[in-house]
Simulated assay, not measured.
Amino acid sequence: MPTAVQTPPWDVHRLPPAQGKNFLVTGGNAGIGYFVAEQLAGTGATVVLGSRDPAKAEAAMASIRARVPGARVRHLRLDLADLSSLKPSVDSLELDHLDAVVHNAGVLLDQPERRETKDGHELTFGTNHLGHFALTHWLAPLLSAAPAGRVVTTGSFAAKSARLDLDDLQTTRDYRPKRAYERSKLAQMLFGCELDRRLRAGGSTTLSVLAHPGGALDSLTPARPPLHARSTGQRLRGLPLALFVQGKQAGAWPAVRAVLDPTVTGGQLWGPRVAGLRGAPRLEPVWDHLADPATAARLWTASATLTGVDPAFHPA
């Protein structure tokens, strides 16, 4: 009788090799996305940083190469707030397959004025949710061409208490930046759950997985000059908070595990171990309001109408 293969315990500092694989990280030039890209680059995979700003992407790639000898990183010019630009961007990837995309990029505005994308959508919702929704459509053939592609959607702990207004997805009434952000992250996570249902129903080998970083602060994040620097004072002031939250390098761990762990299955939610706010990545129960298929299906239909595309994957 063959011996069962034991999967070693997950170690955030000893990731499994991924030579020959291709990963795309949206917003990979800064914040949590940067650390997702840096950690994935250490596996030997080719990591594509999706970013609007070539200069910032070049700085991020230089930082990764300085820490990961032989890192295979490249830049994809990607503007999630411009839907018409997404297909040409995907075409310029020039890959025959994509093993995973990490939907990480996002905006959190602090101005009280409501702003819109080039397509006339509220900027936070249009970038964080609609842009990734449409990007998934254009990436579907590349993800389907991989043996087991993955769509990893980075949500937020802030979405746990948020609720969508399906009659006002564009927040035309009573706009508040923080609430718009929370709702956009909830929309992303509902999309990830609905995508999982559709992938399974269609017999696809592609997985849709959710991840969230918990509480991730700049003051607890290791320096990556010139991308991110912190003074001694900032570091010392942040130390007491380390009992409750973490830095952005640790905030990247759930998404990295969702990309690489061979035991991951579709529809799962990965987050930090300690109260969902800090620590090594662990499997979490899917939050109750994410498991509502009626809301997710209505959001999907509205998103397809607003973007003009409807993500679909070919069966295995």
Rank of each mutant, 00 (worst) to 15 (best):
R179Q: 14
L164N: 05
K185G: 08
K178A: 13
K160E: 08
R150P: 00
T172V: 11
R173N: 12
Y181H: 10
S161D: 14
G155E: 09
K178F: 13
A158C: 09
F157Y: 04
G149T: 13
R176V: 12
A159C: 02
A146V: 01
G149Y: 13
A180R: 07
F157V: 13
A158M: 14
L169I: 11
R179D: 14
A158I: 05
V151T: 09
A148E: 12
A159S: 15
R183I: 04
L166V: 02
Y175E: 03
K178L: 14
D165A: 11
K185E: 03
A148P: 00
P147N: 15
K160R: 10
A158H: 05
A158V: 11
E182V: 11
S161A: 15
R179V: 12
D168P: 01
T154R: 01
P177I: 01
L186V: 06
R176G: 13
P147Y: 15
L166Q: 04
D167I: 05
Y181K: 05
R176S: 14
A180E: 09
V152R: 01
Q170G: 10
G149C: 14
T172D: 12
F157A: 13
K185A: 03
P147K: 14
D168R: 02
T172E: 15
V151A: 15
L166C: 02
K185I: 04
A158K: 07
A148S: 11
S161L: 11
L166A: 04
Q170A: 12
Y181M: 07
R150A: 06
T154D: 01
R176M: 09
K185H: 08
A148Y: 00
G149W: 11
A162H: 04
A159L: 01
K160T: 06
A158S: 13
L166P: 00
G155F: 04
R173I: 06
T172N: 10
A158L: 15
P147R: 15
P177F: 00
V152A: 01
S184E: 08
L186F: 05
T171S: 07
E182C: 14
F157E: 10
D174I: 01
A159E: 13
Y175Q: 03
D174R: 10
L169S: 07
A146F: 02
R183D: 08
D165T: 09
D167K: 06
R173D: 13
T154G: 01
L169E: 06
D168L: 12
A146G: 11
A159T: 01
T153C: 11
G149H: 11
D167L: 07
L164D: 06
R183H: 09
G155M: 09
K178R: 05
